[in-house]
């Protein structure tokens, strides 16, 4: 188990398999909160936070509870419940610990439950079979690192995209292309650029 495994895990989940541009996960918040940079950053931090914790918890739940009992077919129900309750818990903890952080993240947390990026990354992590490849605990750390990388990728794209969108507001766009359509064109061009990154792998 060397450090390169973790570096590869972060880089590949952040850039090569970027969750927004190559897997289309989390497109709703991507279009919804990306009109201001501050909003986009608040959402990204909340997503990274919940994504990492959710991946850790669901990994343990899957391999210690669902797989031994052979009830892995209910994994979807179990995962979504874990995520929903986790979001509530995180919200309560943040509210208690830091009023300032709560003010910043509070409004984004309820939205995260139905953010497909979280459930998507969790499912991808389980499907990837890190458990078989690296062993139980090493696999756990690879899964968490992958989730962190995916969250970073989400933040990176959201930041770049919201910066472009702020400028796009002042651009002379044809009436019918204003708003979402022109943003989707920007996303398409960004997705094209990310195809190039696939070559590095």
């Amino acid at each position: 188990m060397s450090a390169t495994v973790f570096v590869t895990a972060i880089l590949s989940s952040m850039l090569i398999n970027n969750i927004i541009l190559t897997r289309f996960l989390g497109v709703c918040p991507f279009l919804g909160v990306s009109n201001r940079i501050e909003k986009a950053m608040g959402m990204s931090v909340a997503v990274i936070f919940v994504m990492v914790i959710a991946s850790a918890v669901t990994y343990l739940l899957y391999y210690y509870v669902l797989a031994p009992l052979e009830i892995s077919y209910i994994s979807t129900i179990a995962f979504i419940l874990i995520i929903a309750s986790l979001v509530q818990l995180v919200e309560m903890v943040i509210k208690k610990v830091s009023k300032k952080l709560y003010k910043g993240l509070g409004i984004y947390l309820p939205l995260i439950t139905t953010n497909c990026a979280i459930l998507g990354v969790v499912e991808l992590n389980i499907n990837a079979g890190f458990n078989a490849e690296y062993g139980m605990w090493n696999g756990f750390f690879v899964a968490v690192t992958t989730a962190f990388g995916a969250g970073l990728g989400f933040a990176l794209i959201l930041f770049a995209f919201s910066s472009i969108r702020e400028r796009l507001e002042h651009a002379p766009v044809p009436e019918s292309w204003k708003g979402i359509p022109v943003s989707l064109v920007v996303a398409a061009i960004m997705a094209l650029a990310f195809i190039g990154l696939g070559g590095i792998a």
Binding site: F24, I180, V185, A188
Partner: peptide, 16 residues
């Protein structure tokens, strides 16, 4: 992946 964004953008602009 890029095609998905592009086609959806064109369709939305058309409906707009």
């Amino acid at each position: 992946p890029a095609g998905g964004f592009l086609i959806l953008a064109v369709l939305l602009a058309f409906f707009n």
